[in-house]
């Protein structure tokens, strides 16, 4: 049941991060960055010729936050990440990444403070896990290379696989190596681009566990995905992109914002005159027929539920269940994306 009225794009400040666990490695890169946002994006736009990849996108990501970036294929998620990672130059707009202004001259400085794990792990398959990580430790000019590699491998539960050739690893393990690679430089912001794409459920679960543990440690994560359960489970806030930014906020806030609160009632037999029973109840704003009962729009489910139960019993209905409706992030997402599809078709 969709809440009436327009659907504004809201941009709320990032939640305050009150505590931060120890970084993955010993050297923290966050010194001097406290109190700032990890990522600030203002009216950022990227065109490829006539084609618009993303347009007028603005948001902020706080340090220690896990920020979900959702959208359908072709919405511009990966292009946004690549732009923030200085691989692509924005057409217009501005951004600050890890406290550094996004511009071509600052490319190496930004890239030294962030990590991006692309959708494809992109490992050198003839090299061992250790050799892959050694290469990237060199590219970041890290000290204590062996120590950092050991800690990164431990963080992804691969401490005993350092000598394995990457080509011999399963897809899930390769993804873990890619994650270890992304953690090597203690990034101020870790961009994960579709980290579970193409993985089976077990491997997906493993990656979720790893991201969850990073979240516990206070690592700032920018997660692009179109797996909505993944975002709902892992992210403090999410943004939904469909070329333009459609919505941004905490998952439960988005649900409340997009959908009215409601009760689902299942009854054995339908009421003869439901409007007479449900229509005038205190706290009930409206009702509609559902396949096995009724869905009631309510202002406060805790006040409305007992009233509804009493009214139904009074009307002689056999109540099978009475519960508050649970809209998932998927409902929010589909609602918005369907709006876009309908708008395009008009």
């Amino acid at each position: 049941m969709r809440r009436p009225g327009e659907m504004p794009v809201t941009s709320e400040p990032a939640p305050e991060v009150t505590s931060r666990a120890e970084p993955i490695t010993d050297a923290s890169t966050l010194d001097g960055a406290k109190g700032e946002c990890a990522v600030v994006v203002e009216h950022l736009t990227k065109h490829f010729g006539e084609r618009v990849a993303f347009d007028d996108v603005s948001f902020e990501v706080g340090y220690g936050e896990v920020f979900g970036f959702l959208g359908p294929n072709g919405a511009g998620k990966t292009t946004t990440v690549r732009t923030l990672g200085t691989l692509l130059a924005p057409t217009s707009g501005s951004a600050t990444v890890a406290g550094i202004e996004l511009c071509p001259e600052n490319g190496p400085a930004i890239r030294s403070r962030i990590s991006i794990m692309p959708e494809s792990p992109g490992l050198y398959l003839r090299l061992t896990v250790m050799e892959n990580l050694e290469c990237f430790a060199g590219l970041y000019e890290l000290d204590d290379i062996r120590g950092r590699i050991d800690r990164a491998l431990r963080a992804v539960n691969l401490a005993d696989r350092g000598t394995d050739q990457c080509g011999a690893l399963s897809k899930g393990l390769r993804q873990r190596v890619a994650l270890a690679r992304a953690l090597l430089n203690d990034p101020a912001v870790l961009f994960l681009d579709e980290p579970t794409s193409g993985l089976d459920p077990v491997a997906t679960h493993e990656v979720h566990e790893l991201i969850g543990s990073l979240r516990e440690k206070g690592v700032t994560i920018f997660l692009t995905t179109h797996r909505l359960q993944e975002a709902e489970r892992l992210c403090h806030r999410v943004a939904i992109l469909s070329t333009t930014l459609r919505l941004i906020g905490r998952p439960h806030d988005l649900r409340d914002q997009l959908f009215s609160r409601s009760l689902d009632v299942r009854v054995r037999t339908r009421l003869e005159d439901p409007d007479a029973v449900l229509g005038g109840l205190p706290g009930v704003e409206g009702w509609e027929q559902a396949p096995s009962g009724y869905t009631l729009a309510v202002s406060d489910p805790e006040i409305a539920a007992p009233q509804v139960a009493r009214a139904l019993v009074g009307a002689g209905a056999d109540i099978l269940s009475l519960a508050e409706s649970r809209h998932s992030l998927e409902d929010v997402y589909l609602e918005l994306i369907n709006e876009d599809v309908e708008a395009k078709n008009r």
Binding site: L87, R111, P121, G122, F136, Y140, A178
Partner: peptide, 14 residues
């Protein structure tokens, strides 16, 4: 073609 270029270009390498 192997998909290994992007991870390298993401590092600070010039």
């Amino acid at each position: 073609e192997q998909g290994t270029l992007e991870p390298v270009l993401i590092t600070p390498i010039r």
